[in-house]
Design a binder for these strands. Structure first.
Length: 461
RNA sequence: UCCCUGGUAGCUCAACGGUAGAGCGGGUGGCUGUUAACCACUAGGUUAUUGGUUCGAAUCCAGUCCAGGGAGCCA
């Protein structure tokens, strides 16, 4: 007797072979002499139909108690289905009710709003939407590791607790073992020298600086891990805890950086379209009509590449009445980004060489010293999905940038030493994993593509 | 954090100053190789919360809490 998952039975199950399956009841329909039970085990979107004749042992206590949500184990034989809607079904010899499901089970045999499902995050993985979303999430995660592995990258587990307030990017969550009811003070301030690490520590906002360290030894590395921002952001695109992918490449410039980013996005799209066809059909039907076709065309398209200067000119010539006026030096707003990718380029577009004032200190200063070698990848609907740059590899220039940005030279001593000893041109980028999943699935709220979203006021389960 | 919208049965919504309703779900019974089956009956509500206006408030006004959409910050 083979224990099989439903996906394998539906894709390669041989008629008349005997099998055992287990899963959760999605719906049951009773006839006079037998019942239809549809079960799902999470291995795929589709349910498997089980025929339970009333003369199988324990029909009353097992089958007739197997309500929506109950877990059951079925032993039976694969048969060709007499009905429409499925090729094969299971003719049960034995059905065991493992866990019954009382009438107050919140998931009904109908569509629920994602807002309601967010209130039952312990049960929502059992729905079609979340089943599909998390199978795609898994596939994308695997594809990312495979892409980097196959391209000679080393996976770096960058630290989650950090003492460096790197790049000053956003509010950080403090990590402390101090008794917050009774904080040690020194000259009126909290004395962090008494804390676990002997200094102030936080949850990481980026693994980039650590990735740079490893890139100057392994040439090509990437991180793929959780990052944290304590910003009070309440949007469909922000989380306090999210997963970020950050490749870092030595001997690489801005153009090479974009090449990798483009190849990477296309690889993940290709992998998900090939390996999650059924789930993608679901999103194509219910979440974003035409998304499969859109992804297929993006996979083949050459991404546009324009400089910040060209972007500003395009925005000025657009004839659009933007809420935020356009001029050289402004940071691009959501409305500007969407115009550039949705109307101007009509496909993913890299915008490069931003004014140094609106970008981070570590980005490489361009000739003329007005702009830096930064790049953002903008995509329709979401806006920025990737942000990256060629890093400043010249020690003296970097030191001056640290000073100009009122950062502490002492804190970045180790960072400067990477430039002192065997410095190389290097570049990298960061990509929010959940935003990538939104882009792939058409799901419009980031809270619905992460298992347990952390947002302001919300960390339970 | 700011702006807008909303909170009515387990879920999705209606009623928009005058006795709170429907569909789905639940329960009971029936029927059927059914497809989120179908038919009949039935039980579910201090209308988020606090205060105000009014003869009378789910409905109008104000505060609070929560949610959704947009913006900012960003990935």
């Amino acid at each position: 007797m083979n224990k099989e998952c439903i996906r394998n039975i539906l894709s390669e199950g041989k008629v008349s072979s005997k099998i055992m399956i287990s899963g959760w009841v999605r719906t049951r329909r009773d006839s006079k002499d037998f019942s239809f039970i549809e079960i799902n085990d999470g291995s795929c979107l589709k349910n498997l139909q089980v025929i339970a004749d009333q003369d199988i042992p324990g029909y009353e206590e097992n089958v007739l108690q197997a309500n929506t949500g109950a877990s059951i184990e079925v032993i039976g034989e694969i048969c060709e289905s007499q009905g429409k809607g499925q090729k094969v079904e299971i003719k049960a010899k034995k059905i065991k009710l493992l866990g019954d499901c009382p009438a107050d089970y919140p998931l009904q045999k109908k569509r629920h709003t994602n807002e309601f499902l967010r209130t039952i995050s312990h049960l929502r993985p059992r729905t079609n939407t979340f089943g599909a979303a998390f199978r795609v999430r898994h596939a994308a995660s695997y594809a990312i590791h495979k892409f980097f592995n196959d391209n000679g990258f080393i996976n770096l587990h960058s630290p989650i607790i950090t003492a460096s307030d790197c790049e000053g990017a956003g509010q950080m969550f403090r990590v402390t073992a101090l008794d917050i009811e009774n904080l040690p003070k020194k000259e009126g301030k909290v004395d962090f020298s008494k804390d676990f690490f002997g200094e102030e520590t936080s949850l990481t906002v980026s693994g980039q600086l650590e990735a740079e360290i490893f890139a100057t030894a392994f040439s090509k590395v990437y991180t793929f891990g959780p990052t944290f921002r304590a910003e009070n952001s309440n949007t469909t695109r922000h989380l306090a805890e999210f997963w970020m992918i950050e490749p870092e490449m030595a001997f690489c410039d801005l153009s090479g950086n974009m090449d990798v980013a483009e190849k990477f996005i296309k690889y993940v799209i290709d992998y998900v379209l090939t390996n999650c066809a059924e789930d993608m059909d679901f999103f194509n039907k219910w979440y974003e009509k035409g998304i499969i076709q859109k992804l297929q065309s993006i996979r083949k398209a050459k991404f546009a590449r324009i400089t910040y200067k060209e972007a500003i000119e395009a925005l000025e010539k657009s004839g659009k009445d933007f809420e935020y006026p356009v001029s050289w030096g402004i940071d691009l707003q959501t409305e500007h980004e969407r115009y550039l990718t949705e109307e101007y380029a009509k496909k993913p577009v890299f915008v490069t060489n931003y004014p140094k004032e609106i970008k981070a200190f570590y980005m490489r200063l361009d000739e003329g010293e007005e702009t830096v070698s930064a790049m953002d990848l903008l995509v329709p609907r979401l806006g920025e999905i990737i942000g990256g740059s060629q890093r400043e590899e010249r020690e003296d220039v970097l030191r001056q940038r640290i000073i100009d940005n009122d950062l502490s030279e002492k804190d970045y001593a180790w960072y400067l030493e990477l430039r002192k000893y065997g410095s190389v041109p290097h570049a990298g980028f960061g990509l929010g994993f959940e935003r990538l999943i939104m882009y792939l699935t058409g799901v419009s709220n980031i809270r619905d593509v992460i298992p347990f979203p952390r947002t302001p006021g919300n960390a339970r389960i």
